[in-house]
Amino acid sequence: MSSTSTRVAGTAIRTRQSSRVRGRSWLLVQQLAIGLGIVLVWWLVYALGWLSTDILPSPLSVLVQFVLLAGSGTFWVALLQTLATAATGLVIATVVGVALGLVLGLAPPAERATRFLLDLGRSFPVIALLPVMVLILGTRFQMEATVVFLAVFWPVLLQTIYGSRRIDPVVRDTTRAYGIRLRLRFLKVLLPAAAPFIATGVRIGASLAILVAVGIELLVRTPGLGFELGAAQSELRPDIAFAYLIYAGLLGLGVNALLERLESLVLTWNARGDVLEVQP
């Protein structure tokens, strides 16, 4: 009797699993169909000559360039240069932003005194500082990293302040009542509580870092993806420019996915609902 019911239950689970697998591959088919549809519309617009070929290249030529770029040294060097700029700015901004954010989060008078500066800084389009920074530092790597740092610093700082203020008042009173030392309180209470918010800040910062790095390369012609893209466009090679654009998007997607994975590995105590969700 019991073995029958077990077998029935087993079959039920197996059926559910196989239907889930089937659902997932069906989803993949649909996703691919959408992609093909986009390419088809693109090709139609191209083939009917609605837009000049200087503006809209054919999907096939973009695909060819996309493949060719993957085998070219120029592309990989440019990619690494963009990544190096973005990563340098991001790392410095994370260190400075987290340290300053925790201090400001712990000292309300300091937070009030800097509130206006923070509001000004977060809404300041830092890329506008680029011409000034070029005058001061020249078109060097240090200049690029500094501009990226100045842009990324704000989201990291603000997220850290939010995070350190989100700490449960009961926990704060308990640690104070037990006279827990500052160092221990900092490392074992404050940092873990603020970490999910800091992680979000770093993730926002990473996308921003790539955006600003590409922007700098585009505007002051320092080496990197942005420079290559702009150069291809001004040489009337929109096929190469489009291929670079697609790579730029994939870069953003890859970095974002990597950071999300890291986040769920490091922040195991933080049950973030949207990470665990399985798509239908």
Partner: peptide, 14 residues
């Protein structure tokens, strides 16, 4: 996640 500034040369160039 596309760095949106990358579309500027393409749109302005075109």
């Amino acid at each position: 996640t596309l760095p949106q500034v990358a579309i500027i040369p393409i749109i302005i160039g075109a």
